[in-house]
Design a protein around this nucleic acid. Sequence first.
DNA 1: GGCAATATCAAACACCTGTTTGATTGCGAG
DNA 2: CTCGCAATCAAACAGGTGTTTGATATTGCC
Lengths: 276, 276
Amino acid sequence: MDKSTQQIENGMQQVQGVGSVHTDLATESAHAGELKPRTSRPRGQIPTKERLLEAAGEVFAEKGFRDATVRDICARAGANIAAVNYHFRDKESLYAATFEHVQQFEQEHYPLDAFESSGTPQERLVAFIRIMCLRLFDRGRPSWHIKLMTREMIDPTLVMDAIVVKSIKPKFEILTNIVGENLGLPARHDVTEMCAASVIGQVVHYHHCREVTKRLCSGWQEGTTFIDDLVSHVAWFSLRALDGIRADVAAGRAPSGNPFMCPAASKGAHDGGRGG
Amino acid sequence: MDKSTQQIENGMQQVQGVGSVHTDLATESAHAGELKPRTSRPRGQIPTKERLLEAAGEVFAEKGFRDATVRDICARAGANIAAVNYHFRDKESLYAATFEHVQQFEQEHYPLDAFESSGTPQERLVAFIRIMCLRLFDRGRPSWHIKLMTREMIDPTLVMDAIVVKSIKPKFEILTNIVGENLGLPARHDVTEMCAASVIGQVVHYHHCREVTKRLCSGWQEGTTFIDDLVSHVAWFSLRALDGIRADVAAGRAPSGNPFMCPAASKGAHDGGRGG
DNA sequence: GGCAATATCAAACACCTGTTTGATTGCGAG
DNA sequence: CTCGCAATCAAACAGGTGTTTGATATTGCC
C-alpha cells in the first residue's frame, strides 16, 4: 500500500524503454477520438482501454480492490495481462480510473439539474427520492457503479475525498435545500442537514441491506413495483416526519424544537442554533 | 473460495499426524475451563486461542477477509504462524469463529431483554433507538465488532445467514412490535416492517457513512453529546413520521394509507428526471 | 522416569499475486 | 520498402500468501 501510494503522489516518474502510455484518461477518453489509433482493433471495435475499464469496474465492485486480480480483469476484457500496466500505470491507478469513469458516466447520463424539478416542496422531495432510488436500483445500466461506491463509503481509500466533493456534495446541497423548504428552515441549519441525512439513510439502507431485508421481511420481494413501492414509502415516511418537525419548530418546543431531547444531553450541544 | 467452502461443508474430515484441535470453539470457550490446558501459558495468562480470536477480529474488521493476513494476525496475537491452522482449521474457519465470538459477546453483554423496556410506545421506541445507537457507537468496547458486521452486510459471505437468524432477526421483531404499537398496526404488516426499516436505516446510515457525513455537514462533529444528539434526532424524525402515518392510515387515505403513491407505478422507466 | 498428549516453533512448501521484460504485429510516414 | 510508433503478446520475475511439516518444549498421568 505504502509503495503504491507513493507512486501515485509522485506521479508518473517512471521511465521505460518501450511504450506504456497510461495518460490521465479521464480527460482523454472524454474527448475521445482525438488521438488516432494506428493499429486496427483486432478484438471488436471497442478499444482495449475501455474494455479494461469496464471489466475492472465489474471485478472491483464484485470482489473489492484486493480480491480483484489483474488476470481476472484482463481475461474478462479479452486483453493480455500486461495490458493493465501498459494502459494504466498499475492496479491502483486502474482502480482510481474506474471511479473517474463512474463519475464521468454520472455527469453524462444523470445531469444534476434533473433534481431541480419544479412544484411544491413536497413534490420536489418526492421527485428527489424517486431519482435517487432510480439511480440506485437502476437495472440495465452497469450495476457495479453503485457497488463500487458503496464499498468506498464503508471503508474509504484515497479516492473517497474526490468522490465526496465531486459526486455527493452537490446532490446533498440540493437535498438540503428541498428539505429546508419543507421544514421552513435554512438549508445550512443542523436540523435540516440531519433530516436530509435521514432521508438519504433510508434509501441507502434499503440498498445496502437488500440481502438482509430479503431474509427478514415477509412480503418484501423485489417485484416489478419494487422501486415505486420504495419511493412511496420513503416519501411517505419522510414527508410526515418533516411535517411534524416543522410544526414542533414552529411551536418552539424544546431546544431546536426537538421534544425528544435526551435527558442526558442537557448540557451545551455543539450547535446551539435554533430555527427561525 | 470453492475449495474452502467445500471444506466447511464437509466438516473436519482431515486427518493429521500431529495435534491440530480446531474444535467448535463457540461452545467450548463458552463453558470455558472445562478442558484443562496441560501446558503453562508462556505468553501472559490469556490462552493463545483467545488472543488469536481477538487479533483476528481486529485485523479482519480493519482489512477485510482477504486483505487480512494470517501472519499479521499471529503477530498481533504474539503467536506463531502455524497457530491459526492448529487452533482453527484454516483462515476461513477463523473468520467464521470470529463472528461466533461477536455473537456470543453480544448475548453476554447486550441481552435482548434490554430492548423490552416499559412505558408508552413512544418511550419504548426512543429506548430502542438509544440502545441501538449506544451499541453501534459504543466506545471502550471492541470497535471491530460493528465494522466486521458491516462488511458482512454489504457483501455477504457464508456466515451471513447465521448472523441474520441469530443476531438481527430477534432485534428486528422487537422493533416491529414497537413500531406496530406506534402505528396501531400489526407487527407483521408491510407498512410496519418498512417503517421499522426506515428507523434502522437512519441509525445505520449515520454509522456507515460517518466519513462522508463528517466531510459534508458543517456542525456535525463527533463531540461528547454526539450519541445523544443522534438519538434525539432519529427519535424525533421517526416518531413524527409514525404519528403522521398513523393518522393517514386511520383516515384510510390511498392504498395502504399512503397518500404519496407513485403515479408512475405501472411502467419502469429508469430515468425520467422529473417527478410528480 | 516413561509415555502420550498439548502446544508452540522455525522452516519450508506450493501457489498466486502484480509487475516487468523482450519480442512481435500492424500501421502510417518519409 | 524502411523506419518509428503504438499496441499486443507469451514468458518470466520477485514477492507475498495460506498451509504444512517435523522438531521441540511442557505438562499430566502411570
